[in-house]
């Protein structure tokens, strides 16, 4: 993708290097989750986000929230560029949601996370389980539980109301617990409780 270069001041360049570039790892990991773990697409997405940030450096105020700003740019770039290209547009896994909603109707919306079951998981079960969540739920879990954004920041990044952030997180965490529990059972983790 050919990018038109916009010259910035030396002060802006320094601010870019010190305040924006350090978030490249977080952005890259977020991009991986958005692109279903395609490294090349993720690299392109991160580059695209930083190029846009360079273009709009005059809009960035020093001391404000560079990480949230970058994540918003990246999320919007993903929506604009990569969903159009995807052969199979992102779809919600309705089976998971229906299953969850049925559980919720029986008042079992909180699943007991038993660390004696999970403590011996040594592989990539968690990453795999997160990758299998519907993207709307995967996004909020990554933004909150991995990247540490607040509800308000997530609402701005994803462009949804704070109430929706809260409810999606609640559902996402319960879906994740359910998936991890199934992995544990599948791999024969024993119930150590007598």
């Amino acid at each position: 993708m050919e990018q038109q270069l916009h010259p910035i001041t030396a002060e802006q360049a320094l601010r870019f290097e010190k305040e924006l570039l350090p978030h490249a790892d977080s952005l890259f990991n977020f991009a991986m989750h958005l692109t279903n773990y395609k490294e090349e697409d993720s690299n392109d997405l991160v580059q695209d986000a930083y190029f846009k940030a360079l273009r709009f450096m005059d809009k960035y105020e020093a001391g404000t929230n560079p990480k949230a700003w970058l994540f918003t740019i990246l999320k919007n770039a993903f929506i604009n560029e990569y969903r159009k290209k995807a052969k199979q547009p992102t779809k919600v896994d309705f089976e998971d949601i229906i299953h969850y909603q049925q559980d919720d109707e029986h008042g079992a919306s909180h699943l007991d996370f038993r660390d004696d079951v999970f403590e011996n998981m040594m592989g990539d079960e968690v990453t795999k389980a997160i990758s299998e969540l519907p993207q709307e739920f995967r996004t909020v879990i990554i933004l909150c539980d991995i990247e540490g954004f607040s509800y308000e920041e997530i609402a701005l990044i994803v462009d949804i109301p704070i109430g929706t952030v809260r409810s999606r997180l609640h559902r996402a965490r319960n879906l994740l617990k359910e998936k991890l529990k199934r992995y544990a059972e599948q791999f024969g983790y024993k119930d150590k409780r007598s």
Binding site: N29, D115, T127
Partner: peptide, 15 residues
């Protein structure tokens, strides 16, 4: 503990 577990076990790579 669940949240700590998820954060610790989610793969993170460097750019």
């Amino acid at each position: 503990r669940f949240r700590d577990f998820v954060k610790a076990r989610t793969e993170r790579r460097s750019a």
